[in-house]
Write a protein that binds this DNA or RNA. Structure first.
Length: 334
DNA sequence: GGTCCACAGGAAAGATAGGGTC
DNA sequence: GACCCTATCTTTCCTGTGGACC
């Protein structure tokens, strides 16, 4: 059934990106100065999850690398590398300058100094989920480095701009904006068809099943590819040659559960307890949630820290906070 | 409309942990 | 091994907001 499992990963960059020509052209234009030895325009890619923002950025940089040859780029997932130090560290890692840097013993000033000293080929930094940065001063840091080009990726422009220093806002106003809309059903089907062509045996899935996956994914290609992957694995497990409707009945909830499970695994012990309480109780008001949490752990964190945990979990879309003030309740998302 | 109170979340200080230096 | 420096995490203190009650 599966001929090339890499193709079924959402991160895989295809040979051709479908349905994103205007966006690719806009991004290529922003990066074009690099071919003349100049820094690129800062590009700001905005749109909901699973619409191909990261894929387009990587695809364009790969094409640019083929054209210019000598170019470096590094993607930073600001969701994981959210602090100023971690972001700078990841960027330095892209040019192999972190060998002698050790966590917590090197000031971020030194990291910045090293970036300023960099005199290699043109360097493009992709800040993915840039709206998740906890310390946005790092954007000002990066603007202060000559020759460094940036592609910023965010879900919502207003979430990003609302938290930025005025100096960064004024610079970002002139950035090249590229907006990504959700894919339509036909577009998702054709993206899936391409993945099937490259990654599965011929005849592994027919159009009605692809349409069902696309319909479930509601415009999110990442979700659609996840369902296709889960379905292909289930078909392999059953040793059947084709993905059928009854396999999708299993694969669709499983793909959704896989996303939740992998996110819950990233939580610390305290956050997992909070998640489990909400999974059992379905909905709780803040005092009841905190009391239940205190009952289950020997050395509980303070209420304020728990609020930070809950905020983080809501960002992960694991839980939902409904109502304001006294009407606030927490519940499992989805 | 005014007051009270629970709650969220920002800011700053404190605690902790890892690595460097002597 | 003691001390210093640093990033990160946690706590404390505080303010703003909005629903409940009169």
């Amino acid at each position: 059934m599966i001929e090339d499992a890499r193709v079924l990963q959402a991160e895989w960059v295809p040979r051709e990106v479908e349905h994103r020509n205007p966006e690719l052209n806009a991004l290529s234009n922003a990066l074009e100065p690099i071919t003349d030895g100049e820094p690129a325009e800062t590009a700001l890619l905005v749109g909901p999850s699973g619409v191909g923002k990261t894929c387009c950025a990587q695809f364009t940089l790969e094409r640019l690398r083929e054209a210019v040859l000598d170019i470096e780029y590094q993607r930073v997932n600001c969701w994981q590398d959210y602090s100023r130090f971690r972001t700078l560290y990841r960027i330095l890692d892209g040019i192999g300058e972190t060998l002698d840097i050790h966590r917590q013993s090197t000031a971020h000033d030194e990291l910045l100094e090293r970036l300023r000293d960099y005199d290699g080929p043109p360097y493009v930094v992709v800040l993915d989920e840039v709206d998740q940065l906890e310390d946005t001063r790092v954007l000002y840091d990066l603007y202060s480095i000559d020759g460094l080009s940036m592609i910023l990726i965010a879900n919502r422009e207003e979430d990003l701009f609302g938290r930025l220093d005025d100096r960064v806002v004024s610079r970002l106003q002139s950035a090249r904006r590229v907006r990504f809309e959700k894919y339509g059903l036909e577009q998702i089907v054709s993206i899936l068809e391409a993945r099937v062509r490259w990654g599965l045996e011929e005849g592994a899935i027919e159009r009605p099943e692809l349409e069902r996956i696309a319909d479930t994914a509601a415009g999110d290609a990442r979700v659609a590819i996840g369902i296709l992957r889960a379905a292909a694995r289930e078909a392999e497990r059953r040793e059947v040659p084709r993905i059928t409707d009854d396999i999708l009945d299993i694969a669709i909830p499983r793909a959704q559960a896989n996303i939740t499970e992998s996110t819950v695994e990233k939580l610390n012990e305290h956050q997992q307890i909070l998640y489990n309480i909400l999974a059992e109780e379905e909905e709780l008001r803040p005092p009841a949630l905190y009391e239940a949490y205190r009952d289950r752990i020997d050395e509980p964190r303070t209420n304020r820290t728990v609020r930070n945990y809950l905020q983080k979990m809501a960002h992960y879309n694991l839980i939902r906070a409904e109502g304001k003030g006294r009407a606030r309740t927490y519940l499992i998302d989805g």
